[in-house]
Amino acid sequence: MTALPSWAERPSPAGRTAKGLLLTLIVVSVLFPIYMVVLTSLSPQEAVTKAGGLVTVPDGLSFGAYRELFAGGVATRSVLVSLGVTAVGTTISLTVTVLAAYGLSRPGSVLHRTLLFTVLLTFLFVPGLIPSYLVVSSLGLLDSYWALILPSAVWAFNLVVMRAFFMNIPKEVTDSARIDGASEFRILWRIVLPMSKGVTAVIGLFYAVGYWNAFFNAVLYLNDNAKWPLQLVLRQYVLQGQSLITGQASVSSIPGQALPPSLAIQMSIVVVALVPVLFIYPFVQKHFTKGVIIGAVKG
């Protein structure tokens, strides 16, 4: 389908130009801010001063901002926290979701309807903020990294998407394995999962991005800013223009208040928040365009 079908009239030159311009504008509006942020983070201080703000034309190259950012202290630590939470959280979430999706994929099994309903009810009613907070607090999870993982470890939506995918796998395939004496765990691991690589990758990405971007759980449950994940530090540095006190690094006249971070440093944090998403995305996005995420379409 590279060409227009024969019955379609050729679009007019004006129409083609307008469409081209519009599409270019859309693509540029997404890519340009990213370009500008990356460029500013890589520019030497003089270039940023000369530009009077964000750098739009390359003018020298400097990794100074990144060196400073990763010199230790709160920002470095927050990157490690976010990486750790993302890795552990995604592993837990994906494991729990795959298991439950398979466990719920056979209508007619014991308690099938009840358990499914237990999952689906979460779509209809949202418990309030306060009761959730009280539960996390009474479990002693305040100021613990587990508070960033456990309360949102299962997304019912992802579970349902995965289950729908598993249910589409021909019954004959799993039935014959069962007759051969394979256990359910073995069938899941050896047959069902290898047939579901695409959907597993997509759900894994959803979880990973969710953990990497997680903001609100940290605002709610972490009071100690030494434990903050990257998104909170990003807000502090960039949206509020404040450095966090990082031990010896604070050289300020107001005690307890560090100097505002330079624009290049601010932008380098933005880039650090952006980069993992940009890196994983190409590997997974082909599954979007291939239409693996039936569930997303359904839901």
Binding site: L99, G103, V110, G128
Partner: peptide, 26 residues
């Protein structure tokens, strides 16, 4: 079906603690 129930258990457990308990806590 017991293996299926076992597989579903972790997810149901998490939902029970972080979804159903807060609802009751309302």
């Amino acid at each position: 079906d017991w293996p299926l129930l076992l597989m579903t258990l972790p997810a149901i457990g998490l939902l029970a603690v972080f979804y159903y308990v807060p609802i009751m806590g309302s």
